[in-house]
Nucleic acid binder design. Structure first.
Lengths: 192, 192
DNA sequence: CGATTCTTTGAAAACAGTCAATCTGTGTGG
DNA sequence: CCACACAGATTGACTGTTTTCAAAGAATCG
């Protein structure tokens, strides 16, 4: 698997000639991850931005009560990283882990500046990508605050039925902000 | 009041010579808002990105139960807009409103592309700003999920003591995701 | 098949919301 | 300058949603 998916994605948002595409390909590294493999662990400094060519990542952290709290899922054509750790070179408070067998393109932090200098349109590409990501994060906050647990499940299950198949229920429960037991009870009600 | 604060802010993240600064000044419009004045109302299409020179904005929406749910506060040197409405020219699901008397620099959507073409470093500036904003949004989700109402109040009150002075408690309660009554009870406990 | 991981179920408890009444402060108009 | 109105804050009783804990039941993987 190669970086064609990434180049195609970038060309949806900005121009990129073949020379530039070659520069990009020289700056990213394709990595194959097995299910449950980590790209980042809490306490480590995040070293790259990850673009998902195929598969599914999750980011999560450990709460004070030793529970896993899932922050985000990322599927094909999404970027995932911890920007705070990446840009400030600080230890991260998050884990990034493959939910299923996954292929990513890694853009290492130490190659990013040179690449952006050589291909300035990438600044534009990431600006647009980040606008979308920020929007998604804000919509998430909106749903968390305006919907009950039951409603969040209905909304999510209705909006992403195919996605539900790819993740275990305990991860969905964590993402939606409640316990696996409660999700189980919601489903029991729904079926009857 | 003029756009010096904005130019100073941009120069913290990227270069900007005097010609470029003039182009920028020609593209933004300074606006004075009275307390409670709106920059955007639910259902309208958002037409600009707003940089706060002085004052305090909040973004909020109306829940199904007709309650105001606050999404964000923004103070001096922050940008606020609804990117989804701005970029896709869709009706917004949010309100943006002055909490106190506020001065903003407005960058209208219909001038943005020409400005970015003339001053490409602004793509970089906004990329960096958006990374920070995305980070803040993700930390917010982290706190919502890992802390109880009581803990969220303690964390916020400890982290931004001066900010607490600027907003009424019912707004803080909404931002933290609980009712004004509950906040009142938290405070009663803390004092004793 | 055995072992682990995931899901379901039920009872008790905790946390936060709702509603209604009261209290406080602030600003405005007469 | 006072009185009143109104927005915001507090309090208490009651309700409801979600969690916790413990145990048992399915499903999946090597």
């Amino acid at each position: 698997m190669n970086s064609n998916a990434l180049i195609t994605h970038i060309r949806q948002y900005t121009s990129l000639n073949n020379e530039e595409a070659v520069l990009l390909e020289g700056s990213v590294e394709i990595r194959e991850l097995k299910k449950k493999e980590f790209l980042l662990k809490e306490g480590e400094i995040c070293t790259a931005n990850y673009f998902i060519i195929k598969g599914l990542l999750r980011s999560w952290f450990t709460t004070e009560k030793d529970a896993e709290q899932i922050c985000q899922f990322a599927i094909e054509n999404w970027w995932m990283t911890d920007y705070q750790s990446l840009e400030l070179r600080q230890p991260s408070g998050f884990n990034i882990q493959a939910v299923e067998s996954t292929t990513v393109a890694c853009l290492p932090r130490d190659r990013q500046d040179a690449l952006f200098a050589a291909v300035p349109q990438l600044e534009r590409y990431f600006r647009i990508i980040l606008e979308k990501a920020l929007n998604a994060a804000q919509l998430r906050v909106k749903y968390i605050f305006s919907l009950s647990g039951q409603e969040r499940y209905d909304h999510f299950a209705g909006g992403f039925p195919e996605f539900i198949q790819r993740i275990p229920q305990y991860m969905l429960a964590s993402y939606l902000g409640f316990t696996p037991e409660f999700l189980s009870k919601i489903r029991a009600k729904r079926i009857s």
